[in-house]
């Protein structure tokens, strides 16, 4: 029988990963679209900036988040003053850390998807009377959907496994910020935690596997609708 702690950890991890993906989805789609379609000054800087979490040590990302949004960080104080809201040592903070770490992974397949759309299609849509927003909603987004879904799944998997930035930013608090990876780490620290850690590890593998299968199914269904030959 799964212990209440086990259930708590798994549910918290799903909650954190879900919120992280929710945080990152719209910015990732927007950034991917902008990088794929627009020419603007500072484009290469933006590109480097969004990829930084991918190459920086996660501990550094977590520490920067702490400096900026922690209880004593300038933005953290502003949020506390204006909205009475704080990321510090809360599960929402864990989600934010995971979102930042997952962002570049989510953005990449989306950008590739936008880039692979035949530019002629948008020109044609415009001659058929579709304005910018309508073209985005009826052509670009539907055609990029497989890439967007791939980004969501990758991001979810990354958020689920995020460790370094999370533990640095919001610590390892049972019931609040102790997600799957953090729990496995904690259990491995204690002399008789191996068995419980193994159960969590198997759970993590199962969730990742299920997410991948789900996305494969979905994109296969989308692809069946076909592409112009």
């Amino acid at each position: 029988m799964p212990s209440p702690e086990y259930i708590e950890i798994v549910l918290l991890s799903l909650k954190v990963a879900g919120l992280a993906v929710a945080f990152a989805t719209l910015p990732a789609i927007f950034t991917a679209y902008a990088l794929a379609n627009w020419q603007f000054p500072g484009k290469s800087i933006l590109n480097a900036l969004v990829h930084i979490p991918l190459v920086m040590p996660p501990v550094v990302t977590g520490y920067l988040l702490l400096l900026l949004l922690g209880p004593k960080g300038p933005l953290g104080i502003l949020l506390e003053d204006w909205f009475g809201f704080s990321f510090g040592f809360r599960w929402t903070g864990a989600a934010l850390a995971a979102a930042v770490m997952a962002f570049p992974l989510m953005m990449r397949p989306m950008r590739l998807a936008f880039e692979s759309i035949d530019g002629n299609l948008c020109d044609i849509a415009s001659t058929l009377g579709a304005g910018k927003l309508v073209r985005l909603l009826t052509i670009s987004l539907p055609l990029a959907l497989p890439g967007i879904l791939a980004g969501l799944v990758l991001g979810f998997a990354k958020a689920l496994g995020e460790f370094g930035a999370t533990i640095t930013f919001v610590s390892n608090i049972p019931g609040e910020t102790r997600t799957l990876s953090l729990a496995v780490y904690s259990l491995l620290q204690s002399p008789d935690g191996d068995r419980q850690a193994l159960i969590l590890i198997i759970t993590a593998i199962a969730i990742s596997f299920a997410a991948l299968l789900f996305s494969e199914r979905l994109s296969a269904r989308l692809l069946r609708r076909g592409r112009d030959g």
């Binding site: 849509a125 009377g129 579709a130 055609l143």
Partner: peptide, 27 residues
């Protein structure tokens, strides 16, 4: 405008392609 390549929208049926200007272009 008819281009060299037909440029049909691959995610839409022929019917939806034909009526694109009506449902998307409001013509």
């Amino acid at each position: 405008y008819v281009f060299q390549e037909p440029g049909l929208f691959p995610h839409l049926s022929v019917q939806r392609n034909l009526t694109y200007a009506q449902w998307a272009g409001r013509r």
